[in-house]
């Protein structure tokens, strides 16, 4: 059995761990609130852009539609953009992402497609480096520091558009943790290129019902400027969601850790007290039996 001194040390160390985890939990809670506000503040822009894009896209579905909208017509090479976190200690946040990406890569390769990876966040790099190092084309770290910025998202998207224009991939999917609540995140794929969401279909119909727009300059020119911007907006939104999810996941993980540490301290204290009592009893027995022997 461990000595009293050992037990005391253990208790002290678990106590300081608990102090750290509970502090981290509180920091994450504060950051989560801010991240949620940010994510909400960014919503109007994305909504309006979607509306504009919807009414524009309905007008140009023909052959001369920009490639970003229509795609290359093939789907041989897939680019997966993964939004992970820079820091760990946030439960299954990055693990779930990595698992989903691995499955996706496996099924795509099984279907004979080529896969390329762009990873945002240090943790995602660490998790996927071992198995899929040859597929990683670019990594971004510390983009969301102190919080996700539109410039950061644009930087990534510039790289994506450059690659697309160079014909390096046909389909681009963004994978991120969608914020459902502070307790749950959902790994969500979002197809960026070709731009084809159901929402656009609905928006396009609604747009067609509205009055016809005039365009200045021509539709194609606006679309050409709008599409890359939309890409950045989508990526930015994903980054904000992912950031909020990360804080939520960390908060939950740290809450659990704090609770576990508390349980552990209780158990250790009981062992400590029992051990001390046993020691006292055995000392007494020694004294008494010593006195009797006289």
């Amino acid at each position: 059995m461990a000595s009293l001194k050992d037990l005391k040390n253990r208790i002290a160390s678990v106590q300081s761990t608990r102090r750290i985890t509970s502090a981290m939990k509180m920091v994450a809670a504060a950051k989560l609130r801010k991240a949620q506000i940010n994510a909400e503040a960014a919503r109007p822009y994305a909504e309006r852009m979607e509306r504009m894009l919807g009414s524009l896209a309905s007008g140009s579905k023909g052959e001369n539609a920009p490639k970003l909208l229509a795609g290359t017509g093939k789907d041989d090479t897939h680019l997966i953009v993964l939004v992970s976190s820079d820091r760990g200690l946030c439960g299954g946040f990055n693990g779930n992402l990595a698992r989903d990406v691995r499955n996706r890569i496996d099924s795509l390769t099984a279907a004979g497609k080529t896969v390329k990876l762009i990873i945002i966040g240090r943790k995602g790099v660490t998790l996927l480096k071992r198995d899929h190092a040859d597929k990683i084309v670019a990594t971004y770290e510390e983009l969301s520091k102190p919080e996700p910025s539109f410039e950061g998202a644009s930087e990534v998207c510039e790289k994506i558009t450059d690659m697309f224009e160079a014909g390096e991939f046909d389909v681009c999917t963004l994978i991120y943790n969608k914020f459902v609540s502070a307790l749950t995140q959902e790994v969500t794929p979002l197809q960026l290129i070709p731009f084809a969401s159901e929402e656009t279909g609905e928006a396009a119909e609604a747009g067609a019902g509205d009055a016809q727009y005039e365009y200045e300059p021509e539709e194609e020119a606006i679309l050409e400027a709008l599409l890359p911007k939309n890409l950045s907006v989508q990526a930015f939104r994903a980054m904000l969601e992912s950031f909020a999810s990360e804080q939520g996941a960390r908060m939950t993980a740290m809450d659990n850790a704090t609770r576990n540490a508390g349980d552990m301290i209780n158990k250790l204290s009981i062992t400590y007290n029992r051990t001390r009592q046993a020691q006292i009893t055995s000392e007494l027995i020694e004294i008494i039996s010593g006195a009797e022997a006289l």
């Binding site: 009414s55 009055a211 016809q212 727009y213 005039e214 200045e216 300059p217 020119a221 606006i222």
Partner: peptide
């Protein structure tokens, strides 16, 4: 400031999308 000239907007303007 539209890219092809300034646009004055008053109520009842016809629908426009511009850069």
């Amino acid at each position: 400031p539209g890219s092809e000239g300034d646009l004055g907007v008053q109520p009842g303007h016809s629908p426009v999308i511009a850069t």
